[in-house]
Design a protein around this nucleic acid. Structure first.
Lengths: 410, 410
DNA sequence: AATCTATGTTGCGTAGAACAACAAAATATC
DNA sequence: GATATTTTGTTGTTCTACGCAACATAGATT
């Protein structure tokens, strides 16, 4: 019913849409002159000027001081344009990850630069939702001076839970939550009136990993977060594909093998627990860590290599299965287990080749190296993305979602 | 690079977008008054009136003659509105399926009603692309009087091939094609200048099966075409998800079992060939047909039921695997083998339940009953959908896709 | 120095939506 | 049955924001 193409454009919306487009272009390309912007947006130079004028008045855009006047190959004839850039600290966004063992918060600015982060240990399962939300909010706000607060334009939460697009948690097994409206709780707990979004942690991670400037990769990216559990997210043309229930990309439960005894799913085959379980059987150390394991693999210790080999095979099968359905052209691996991939690149590729028909295009595989704040960063990015879209509160958006003049006159 | 949100709106575009929105609303809801339309589109009544006036002048919309004046529950206070409707035969679209054994053509009108169809036997593998295109075009046009031709507003082709979104066929194993620009060939063969789109047959089928009026199901639909081969398509919020290479939803090659000997993929387990191969071993008939098999299953003949049981299990596993990745909430089965599903509903459901974790929402499964023209119909629908969008040629669209003022200035 | 080229700005024209006012066509109310 | 009420469709006006053209500007080119 909320068919975007069914809502009409008015005059206000034109300008809104064009201002948003200008902001997005500046975010994507970094620096542009008014004339360049006009070309990108297919606008007249004069219109571009007007739009920039109003964005400048709002303090979102400024003329860049030419610190590096001689960019290589920038010798063009004609009057040089005045470079424009976003004012990074004009506004900011907060992202929080409520994990099982820790809470992380991230503050990003209009240029999606990370301004500050906080991480705090946390015992998720033993704490109520309300208390968790309270701690998350206070941790996120603790390093923000009161005077700056009003420049906050969005608050994102990520957590290991299955939730709908409104932030209603259906089930969070690791935290013991069920049917809690997380987004609403956070909204109420915040001393600000800003847009709040909640999202599954793997989905948020996926957004964060793909939502960089000039990273508007048009295509399909499958993002895999490999820790004890295996999470996943799918990004289509730069925006998250949630699926019907927010479960799209959660490939941890794919059945990989039904060879001998019980069926084994991907999580059971490539998760951290499994690797460490196997590794403990062979390691001579008292308390072997994943780091020890990686070192052993690097040293080509047969027992460790054998475990890694199993891992590579299962990962390859999982990726091939997933790509047969969503036809991704890019795969990004994240989470601590991803560190194993660079050691096993060739083996994974070989298994993919063996499983795949030759006619199928093979996606590129890369490792994401965001720190522990990846998911919180992604949550913040979701609000950055929202700000640079037509739903932005800045334009009295949101209304479009709330009104819904549903009149079912059968 | 073709980021839609990066292109700005001008004055012309406003009207375009609003006219398109009006046409879409009328298509979706059938009949609306100007005031109702204004509410749906969030426009002022007067603007709605202007838009309707210009669409009426173009012959696309008319005031409906109140043949059924008393719609139930239609007693509302106030002046009753004048109902508006699309003029079905204002324009039409053609769709062609170039299959392996037959060519089917469909003509649909602005209301997506099927006006006429043609089916002709065809020996795909033995015929060149050019000849196939020529036959397809002549079959599609044969029943269209010359005077009507100019009202054609689009031509769609579907064929069992992997192709990109521009209609360039990378590979069509069943027809022996490789690297042919099918859409261009059709464009050149047509005696009209109309938009031409080409799409994989399963994808086209999927569009046709979901693109009904008032069928703008917002959600994720997985469509499965089961014949000798297994094709598939994914529809997200009413529009086709092609994936990076047009292969999204092609779940025929999912690995279902690696139990004893060689791996078996879904196609090898639930395809028509497999069923009939098994059935021939047990049937007492000389030339058993799939119809015989269905009858035997219906009669609970143990040998047939056993084959069907295997089929149900493999299908269930395939669907569960697919839904774990794309999180579909609706599955539609098509193709001749789909007729087996109604007999096995309970078994499939049981297997899904057994494979699935309880927390996972189970999608609805329905059988599509389009005839043999489903894929051609879908191809025609693609152009209907395009006409009711901003890329419509009617508004000098397409330019947006051709210009591309790419200026990579490092 | 003169010319060329591209940029940024300004004033004007215009398309098209919002707004307000009004007549019309029905129901609701007394 | 007359009047009030409600909703619709239309008309004229206002306003917003873009396109266009003209011009001054700032550099490169000759």
């Amino acid at each position: 019913m909320n068919d975007p193409a069914l809502t009409a454009s008015s005059h206000r919306r034109i300008r809104q849409s064009n201002e948003v487009a200008a902001l997005r272009a500046l975010h994507q390309f970094g620096r542009l002159s008014r004339a360049e912007l006009a070309r990108k947006l297919r606008l007249n130079r004069s219109s571009s000027g007007h739009i920039i004028a109003s964005l400048t008045a709002d303090g979102l855009v400024r003329e860049a001081i030419e610190d590096s006047p001689e960019q290589p190959g920038y010798a063009r004839v004609g009057r040089p344009g005045i470079m424009l850039e976003l004012v990074p600290d004009a506004i900011f966004f907060l992202g929080v990850e409520i994990g099982v063992e820790h809470i992380s918060t991230v503050e990003i600015d209009l240029g999606t630069n990370i301004v500050s982060t906080n991480v705090e240990p946390f015992d998720g399962p033993s704490i109520s939702v309300e208390a968790a939300v309270a701690r998350a909010v206070s941790l996120a706000l603790q390093s923000i001076p009161a005077s700056k607060l009003e420049r906050c334009e969005g608050f994102g939460v990520s957590t290991p839970a299955q939730m709908d697009k409104h932030g209603l948690v259906r089930l969070a097994p690791l935290l013991g939550w069920r049917n809690v409206h997380l987004a609403d709780l956070v909204r109420d707990a915040l001393p600000l009136r800003v847009p709040v979004l909640a999202e599954n942690d793997a989905n948020a991670f996926a957004i964060g990993a793909t939502y960089g400037r000039s990273e508007v990769h048009s295509g399909v990216t499958l993002f895999l977060v490999m820790e004890s559990g295996i999470g996943g997210g799918i990004i289509i043309d730069g925006s998250l594909f949630r699926g019907a229930n927010g479960l799209a990309g959660e490939i941890g439960h794919l059945i990989i093998s039904d060879t001998p005894g019980p069926r084994r799913n991907l999580e059971q085959l490539i998760g951290l627990e499994t690797i460490m379980g196997e590794y403990r059987k062979t390691s001579t150390l008292d308390h072997p860590t994943f780091g020890n394991f990686l070192a052993d693999v690097q040293d080509r210790l047969p027992s460790a290599v054998s475990i890694a080999e199993q891992w590579a095979r299962a990962l390859a099968i999982g990726l091939v299965q997933a790509c047969r359905i969503i036809d991704a052209d890019r795969i990004v691996l994240g989470g601590s287990v991803a560190a194993l991939y660079p050691l096993m690149t060739a083996r994974v590729a070989a298994h993919i080749h063996a499983t795949q028909e030759s006619s199928f295009p093979v996606p590129s595989i890369t490792v994401n190296d965001e720190g522990t704040v990846g998911s919180a960063f992604g949550a913040a990015c979701m609000l950055h993305q929202r700000y640079l879209s037509l739903e932005s509160q800045r334009f009295g958006g949101e209304a479009a979602e709330l009104e819904e003049p549903e009149e079912d006159e059968g």
